[in-house]
Design a protein around this nucleic acid. Structure first.
Lengths: 112, 112
DNA sequence: TTTTTGCGAAACCGAATAGTTTCACATATA
DNA sequence: TATATGTGAAACTATTCGGTTTCGCAAAAA
């Protein structure tokens, strides 16, 4: 059973749950009200999110409040980091190219 | 058939392919040499990556070089952004709390 | 105490997934 | 020309996935 954060955010319903409980802790029933599925289906999603440490539970009588462990999202951010480096480098190279072109254009202008 | 970037990066082999071709354009055969599967399996992964616009192909005779369209990765970065805001806010609040505590401690010190 | 409510878990189902094997086809190479 | 090579696609398979229905159990409410 693969269970990592990348697999967790692959499902659109789970992504929506993540956004929802990042704003406010919620019970499974309350979460389910926001979707067009059964509470049990939401429960299964919550189990997956719990298994990969993305959410935490807070018990209150028979109710369970789920909320996002937002620090866990940093793992994705860290993986993206290597590509951010690439696109920032490329942007800087483009920036440099444009600056160079602009300088050259001005040089040509002056020649005229 | 769901085909979005989040589903694309859910598979560990695909993530490895992405990293590999982000460094250097490669043919399917060369990519496959880095994994413990058949070239055909890699081909299927490349198809999925192509379908969600994550890679581009460059034809050279009968060879096809695949490379990463790194700008596409920004889509994930943009989704993460909302959580980055949350964890940065929390950090600042903690930072503020620690500063306040420190100030109060110094105030107590002075009283002594 | 009896009934209602909130919840997770199990059993089941159809669809999607990741892989393999086999194939067709075009391009190199002998 | 004949053979080898690089590739994508199709057919098939075992497994996983996302969902539903049904159930059991504990807590709250009547």
């Amino acid at each position: 059973m693969r269970r990592d954060i990348f697999q967790a955010i692959a499902d659109p319903t789970r992504r929506a749950i993540i956004v929802l409980i990042s704003l406010q802790a919620m019970t499974p029933n309350t979460i389910a009200e926001n979707f067009n599925t059964t509470r049990q289906a939401i429960s299964k999603h919550l189990r997956i999110l719990t298994e990969c440490q993305l959410v935490k539970q807070e018990y209150n009588g028979r109710e369970i409040y789920y909320s996002l462990k937002v620090e866990k999202m940093k793992e994705i951010d860290q993986w993206i980091e290597q590509f951010r480096k690439i696109w920032e480098t490329r942007f800087n190279q483009l920036d440099h190219l444009l600056t160079t072109m602009s300088t050259e254009r001005q040089a040509i202008k002056k020649q005229k």
